[in-house]
């Protein structure tokens, strides 16, 4: 066995944790759990987010629809104006 193998064997050798290690880990894990959300609360929050997104999307679609309608009315108005002007030219 050469020196490298000996080094590796030493480094990878199984070592038992120091006394009280498991208890310290449990305590630390307990401290880090600041807040655990109940399932019903998580579900309600998700529902609110989805509903909010839906309302937002609907609002956006409504505004786009309104702009399109206004544009359509404007085009119609321009064409009607053009016709009216032409008719008046012929029959003032």
């Amino acid at each position: 066995m050469d020196w490298l193998e000996q080094e590796l064997k030493h480094a990878l050798a199984r070592k038992d944790p120091p006394p009280g290690f498991a208890a310290r880990v449990r305590r630390a894990a307990g401290r880090s759990r600041v807040f655990t959300m109940p399932r019903w609360m998580a579900a309600t929050a998700a529902l609110l987010v989805v509903t909010g997104a839906g309302i937002g999307w609907r609002e956006h679609r409504g505004r786009v629809a309104k702009e399109q309608v206004m544009m359509a009315v404007r085009i119609t108005a321009v064409q009607l104006n053009r016709i009216q002007t032409r008719v008046r030219e012929v029959r003032p």
Partner: peptide, 9 residues
């Protein structure tokens, strides 16, 4: 709509 979008009667 006349007067708003310029639509004639």
């Amino acid at each position: 709509l006349s007067g708003h979008f310029g639509v004639p009667k």
